[in-house]
Nucleic acid binder design. Structure first.
Lengths: 233, 233
DNA sequence: ACCTGAACACCGTTCAAGT
DNA sequence: ACCTGAACACCGTTCAAGT
């Protein structure tokens, strides 16, 4: 499709150099490498990404990747930060609904990670990229508007970060394989007499992840900004 | 040391078969494998554990391990759960200080993981072992005593689990290498105009992890059990 | 019952070389 | 400037065999 000669006769898009063979792969680039890495991670999980497989998908030799990228770690960092890009409006102050604004920021963050289940567990191990910092910035500003005191700001940010990250990792790992989950449930059922309390509340059978996330976040926000009650209109 | 012939003349400990050469390594066992795996993980981190290195330390061939253990994943599961064994008293109800009891359970959990920094990030990826379930059980009972309603129980447990796990992973990853941390701070400083809010609160320079953990946990508990105020005697 | 070495099918990355 | 293949120093695990 790309490069097909249509109505425009001048080559306005490729501005210099001889045309490469029309049907070949586009040249390697950081961007293409990252996009393909994300595809591979989505399809095969964290262990599924290898430099060799990545090169295969890109139709290049393995070592060609290393011109564009420092190492496999580098690929992980780039893929993670790419997936965390915030695509919403930076100004979503909805009629002074600060609580709603904070919830929006965190739900959007969580949704981005759940779209790429490998990303949550990577986030906890890799350095903070620009898009991650951007989301922290957004959160910090929303918390300020919600009246969180400067002295409590870092505690509030880290608490929410930890909560979102933990919740997303937990959910992603429980969703990973029904097989594992069934095995865990079986083992729990077998040991139910030793774990009477969590058996009674059916902790490991509860799969309303979205509801649990929202309600737990509500409790945390109640603690962080007691002025703003959850039942306010 | 082990097996040294002393005052006891009868061999009461080894009950059958010929004595092995006195000075040799004790025989391979699940227990020894797990203990050595933990040593290796403590010394070299998650990537430092390989079956070959593990066998070397144990003075055995690599494939001998597979008689006692299913796979490398199995070793991870066993090492993780071993490290999470709860060594405190199961009855620490201190004069009806339910809030203090909950905090104790969670601080002890966190401390166990911080002693083995690889464990927190493993916890998020591996299945729940018996010791992990035991700690969840302890938490569940403490929450019941603190008056958390049955309908809120699972939300409360998961919220606290997510908080503790997230906080511990975050702390462990920031402590991992001063080098990375310095690099992150440098990058943040350079981009400070784009991230004015988190720069202002010096989010990434704040290293009072213990205080932040405790205060954030306080906020979460305020939300979960509003009856029990943090300033109560 | 417990341990072993050889072999297989992989890894990430260095290096010296090509265009 | 960009790409490459050969080679190095590793992996986890299968298998057939030893005691």
């Amino acid at each position: 499709m790309a490069g097909k000669r249509g109505a425009r006769s001048k080559r306005t898009q490729r501005t210099s150099g001889p045309l490469p063979p029309v049907r070949s792969e586009p040249p390697l680039s950081r961007q293409r490498i990252v996009a393909t890495a994300i595809e591979l991670l989505d399809a095969q999980g964290l262990d599924g990404l290898t430099m060799r497989r990545l090169a295969d998908r890109l139709g290049s030799g393995v070592m060609s990747l290393y011109w564009h990228v420092d190492s496999k770690e580098d690929v992980f960092d780039l893929a993670l930060d790419s997936v965390l890009e915030y695509r919403g409006s930076p100004h979503i102050a909805q009629l002074h609904d600060w609580r709603g604004e904070i919830i929006h920021v965190l739900e959007d963050w969580r949704a981005s990670m759940l779209r790429h289940p490998w990303s949550a567990s990577l986030l906890s191990r890799r350095a903070l990229g620009p898009n991650t910092l951007g989301r922290l910035e957004l959160l910090s500003k929303a918390l300020s508007r919600a009246g969180v005191a400067a002295a409590d700001m870092n505690v509030a940010i880290w608490s929410l970060w930890n909560y979102v990250m933990g919740a997303t990792i937990t959910r992603a790992s429980f969703e990973l394989s029904d097989e594992d989950r069934a095995a865990a449930q079986l083992r729990l059922a077998r040991l139910s007499e030793r774990y009477a309390a969590i058996e009674r509340s059916r902790l490991l059978l509860d799969d309303d992840w979205d509801g649990t996330f929202r309600r737990g976040l509500g409790f945390l926000l109640d603690g962080l900004a007691p002025g703003q009650n959850s039942s306010a209109p």
